[in-house]
């Protein structure tokens, strides 16, 4: 995995008190070039066949993740399994509406995941606000804050729809389209500005390692 030569300027981390800034990393995310040719296709196949979910239910839609593990829907047969820590997981399922308070945790968890990482946005609320379109505390589109690979419409989508979304995600990864991490790094300033616009008390590092 070759890395980009240009290293972006260190982040200011202005949300942290000065005495704590030294405790956190101030490096901005970098873009990573994919490997070439058949080797990258093989790696993408492995990534698509071993999707580890972050076990973080961010909204009411997370209730649809539980049936997936049961014997009726059995997501394990597709190589999908839950993982309790963002460090080890590669798929983040946004479970429906995201309040501002949750968005803060979503951003933190998403940034802690190791790339390549993929986001599956579940439910109408993540697309255009859904039934929370006029809520004072719920963001209306998640793709302003983190890159999204697949949307699953519905309120709520059934577990079958979720499985179909996973198949679509696999297709995208296999075709080399799952580059959300690089997209996030490329447009980091834009994403960060959007996040800071709604998260008023920004008391965490600018990029959470």
């Amino acid at each position: 995995m070759s890395e980009k030569k240009t290293i972006p300027a260190p982040l200011a981390n202005e949300g942290l008190p000065p005495e704590e800034r030294g405790l956190f990393c101030d490096a901005a995310p970098r873009e990573y070039e994919p490997a070439r040719g058949a080797w990258e296709r093989f790696l993408n196949w492995a990534r698509s066949e071993s999707l580890w979910l972050l076990g973080f239910g961010t909204g009411c839609g997370a209730i649809e993740l539980r049936p997936l593990m049961t014997s009726r829907f059995d997501m394990y047969r597709y190589g999908i399994q839950p993982r309790p820590t963002p460090r080890q997981s590669s798929v983040f399922v946004i479970g429906g509406y995201a309040s501002v308070k949750t968005l803060k945790r979503i951003v933190r968890s998403y940034e802690q995941m190791m790339g390549p990482k993929f986001v599956l946005a579940l439910g109408s609320c993540t697309i255009n606000g859904g039934m929370y379109w006029d809520s004072y505390n719920t963001i209306k589109r998640i793709d302003q804050y983190i890159p999204v690979d697949v949307y699953i419409a519905g309120c709520m989508p059934r577990p079958e729809a979720l499985l179909a979304g996973f198949q679509e995600l696999k297709r995208i990864i296999k075709s080399g389209g799952g580059e959300g991490q690089n997209e996030y790094a490329r447009n980091f300033d834009w994403y960060k500005a959007n996040q800071k616009k709604v998260i008023k008390d920004w008391n965490m590092p600018d990029y959470n390692w």
Binding site: I127, G129, S135, V198, I199
Partner: peptide
């Protein structure tokens, strides 16, 4: 709420829709 800067939001003269339109990006 975390970092809430608007008026108390359960007051009936608080316009949730206007606040939402002004604050959150819409598709």
């Amino acid at each position: 709420l975390e970092g809430w800067e608007g008026p108390p939001m359960m007051r009936r003269d608080f316009d949730s829709l206007a606040y939402s339109d002004a604050t959150y990006a819409e598709r």
